[in-house]
Design a protein around this nucleic acid. Structure first.
Lengths: 254, 254
DNA sequence: TCCAAGTTTGACCAAATGGTCCAGATTTGA
DNA sequence: TCAAATCTGGACCATTTGGTCAAACTTGGA
């Protein structure tokens, strides 16, 4: 895939009308998705609020199945290694049918990325200066680790994007993510100033939490090879959470 | 690339003799490379110790150029996204010429991996029970961070491999790496038992060092987007080293 | 100088793959 | 019940790409 964005923007082919799915294009779409993280779900309710017929529901299910399969395949093989055919097969759908719902591989990839974005960003939730640092940081670590356990493919997908140099994500990083990041850095800074935290460097503290928690998803194979355990193992999950939390808190508390 | 190993093992084509380059095949090769990490360099000296003529040297240079270009391209685009043509171009060589030195894309990929392996494994150097924990851990962190600064592509390449599920590396992980890992865990365990270290969980401590240091190479785009800095920035490098070291040591020392 | 071995490349080939067409099946709404 | 709208998938196409071939070009040594 050369330039996902450029190829995605193209005239619709003449035939039958397509299910409404492409609002916004390329990276802009991702930024928009990222910004609406905290907002209310955009489910029905908005415009044409007619009850979904059997057909519509089936279509939505198919679309979801495709998206799910695509996430799995993209996260494992990467956007280049994954073939449309393979994704279609994994979703139990014919290739042309997949292309009916998502007009191109790039569009599909973008959709997968978009879908994962909210989930990916969510753990850096809303903790404020007023919160207790130990509790807030502990909660963040727990949330990120659960994310690594329950949605490792999402973590891997974004890791993959980072490794490629984040061609699609850069706007998100520089925009919405930076905004949240700066805000959280400020909170940490305030904690430090208030003497609630040792003199840690806020950005590095946040990087540390990310790195420590994502490691168990992105490098799961290595972790498994070396310890024989996975986060799905209840005991290992708790052990990991305790170890990471202890490390960070002991390192950050006064 | 479906199965790098299977495709690599194939009869040499009938024509001219190939430069001796393929000893061992596929994953076995990688394990061998990993095992010989500490050993002396296998430069000349061995068999035919005649002085290298101009031609031979030129060939070796070309081979090195190809390997270097391949590392860069593979690390950025992944083994599937990288085309032989692109690598050849980056190396300033024609495609058939590249294929002359490395009989297939898979073989080249394997060679790149093999080359990086020693470097990748080396930082987990030789620290023993007798060493001072703070010093040893500090040195490890420093070494890994330098690695992230000076050879980020290597780090990314291996991260990529992990994300794909380490099809080629699994034997290395389960073999040589696990051996070193277990040994180092034992050392950490001994430190804990001797009261030189708090009651940390050895595997998680090591994972922590890996995760914290590799993050700055693998997620360099994100770090740059959020802080505007890179490890190549001297001040940022030191700041990072201090932050990571402080975090780990404060978390691990009694 | 001449030759055999090694090196380089333009032209080509076959497979894989993203994407298109179209004809037929299925729903939906009137 | 019927026509319009929407789905579905087999056949097909163009491009990309890993890899091959044969012919031309270097180079080191007898």
């Amino acid at each position: 895939m050369a330039d996902p964005i450029a190829k995605t923007v193209k005239p619709l082919r003449g035939g039958a009308a397509r299910p409404a799915a492409k609002r916004g294009t390329g990276a802009r779409k991702l930024v928009k998705a990222a910004q609406s993280v905290g907002e209310a779900g955009d489910a029905a309710a908005a415009e044409g609020a007619r009850p979904p017929g059997r057909r519509e529901r089936a279509g939505e299910a198919r679309r979801a199945a495709i998206l799910k399969a695509a996430l799995a395949v993209f996260a494992r093989l990467g956007p280049d290694g994954a073939s449309v055919e393979a994704i279609a097969q994994a979703a139990g759908v014919s290739k042309p049918n997949l292309l009916y719902y998502y007009p191109s591989k790039d569009a599909l990839y973008l959709a997968v990325l978009e879908q994962g974005l909210a989930l990916w960003l969510s753990p850096l939730g809303r903790f404020t200066e007023a919160d207790d640092p130990a509790e807030a940081i502990g909660a963040l670590i727990a949330a990120k680790l659960e994310m690594s356990r329950d949605h490792p493919e999402v973590s891997r997908l974004f890791a993959l994007e980072m490794l490629r140099g984040a061609p699609l994500l850069k706007p998100v990083l520089a925009g919405p993510l930076k905004a949240v990041f700066d805000a959280k850095c400020a909170v940490v800074g305030a904690w430090v100033a208030a003497g609630k935290l040792a003199a840690v460097d806020p950005p590095h503290l946040i990087f540390a939490v990310w790195a420590l928690t994502q490691h168990y998803a992105d490098f799961a194979v290595q972790v498994r090879a070396l310890t024989g355990k996975t986060l799905t193992d209840r005991a290992f999950m708790e052990e990991t959470r305790d170890a990471v939390t202890a490390l960070v808190l002991r390192g950050a508390l006064p």
